[in-house]
């Protein structure tokens, strides 16, 4: 079966190659060139510049002492800095919590909202509202919710535990600070995954569901055997995007906890920001962002490998 499929695919590919003329390849180049030029100018070029910076002691405001080439000194210092490793593990912890929460909730909501018959537009906008709210505003609002001891969150917790669970210092406790950031982040951003899932769900032809209806498949069976397998491309996309976004956690932390208490919510991008934007050590900061890049690249490659084996099956 697999072999036949492969042979068929190869035949198709040969046919396609035959049909593609040189003229088409020129069109092809013209269509991808704008993107490549822009990516080079606005992403790759500054990135390469920061690689160069990472081996110097460059400061934000250029002083009278000339910038020196310092080799790998910045890298050595970063890798031997316990704060860097703490930030690293924090980001890992954050990702492991936020990815399932955010993507799972987004998938559930997308499924509910996709096949609505009533108030479709209204409900979709309602559930999308948190995502259109700027992060700065979101953090301000949640700061109020997390307030100690009378904030809404503490009121809720004490209400549902019949007063057994006392007020918790959400953002100031070493244990709760990160989960609090996770909840807020998932709330703010699930709309992103939800809208992509909705897009993915739109691409599944309705007839399949109609056929399943006739066969008497229930909602769960339809999801399990039709929706889920059809979403494979969307899932890959979402998993990769969400992972990368999670590893780049910054804004919430910078406004709410500044990495505290005791570094338990420090993240890698916050580490970069603190050394570069606050400490004004551009070279050191560039070196840490390079390390962050390599780290995410590594995780991405592992993910890609395991996903592509998954896709093949």
């Amino acid at each position: 079966m697999n072999l036949v499929h492969k042979m068929y695919q190869n035949a198709q590919k040969r046919e396609r190659d035959r049909l593609m003329s040189g003229h088409d390849q020129r069109q092809e180049l013209l269509m991808i060139l704008p993107a490549l030029i822009l990516l080079f100018l606005f992403l790759l070029l500054p990135f390469l510049m920061s690689v160069e910076l990472s081996c110097t002691n460059q400061r934000l405001v250029q002083g009278p002492v000339p910038t020196k080439f310092v080799g790998l000194r910045n890298y050595v210092r970063i890798l031997s800095d316990p704060e860097f490793w703490q930030a690293f593990w924090n980001v890992m912890r954050f990702s492991l919590m936020v990815i399932p929460l955010q993507c799972g909730f987004a998938l559930i909501m997308a499924n509910f909202l996709n096949k609505l018959t009533m108030m479709k537009s209204f409900l979709r906008s309602l559930y999308f509202l948190p995502f259109i709210t700027p992060m700065v505003i979101v953090t301000v609002i949640w700061q109020t919710i997390y307030q100690y001891p009378n904030g809404i969150m503490n009121t809720l917790v004490s209400f549902f535990s019949f007063g057994a669970v006392g007020p918790i210092e959400w953002l100031g406790s070493e244990f709760w600070a990160m989960p609090s950031i996770v909840l807020l982040s998932a709330w703010q951003a699930y709309g992103f995954q939800m809208i992509i899932y909705l897009g993915g769900l739109q691409n599944i032809p309705n007839e399949i569901y109609e056929a399943a209806d006739i066969d008497g498949a229930n909602g769960w069976e339809q999801f399990r055997f039709i929706t889920w397998p059809s979403l494979i491309n969307t899932n890959v996309l979402i998993l990769i995007i969400t992972t990368i976004q999670a590893l780049k956690l910054f804004t919430q932390v910078n406004i709410l906890t500044k990495g505290g208490p005791n570094g338990t919510t420090n993240t890698l991008v916050h580490y970069i920001y603190e050394s570069g934007f606050v400490g004004q050590k551009i070279g050191y900061s560039a070196a840490s962002s390079l390390l962050l890049f390599l780290l995410i690249l590594g995780i991405f490659l592992v993910q890609r490998l395991s996903l592509s084996s998954l896709e093949r099956n």
Partner: peptide, 22 residues
């Protein structure tokens, strides 16, 4: 002093650690 950006970052980290029992 031109090193003030570093002085403030490092002192603030120490202050936070002190409040947290270091």
């Amino acid at each position: 002093h031109p090193a003030y950006p570093t002085i403030t970052v490092e002192y603030a980290k120490a202050f936070d650690a002190i409040l947290n029992g270091t």
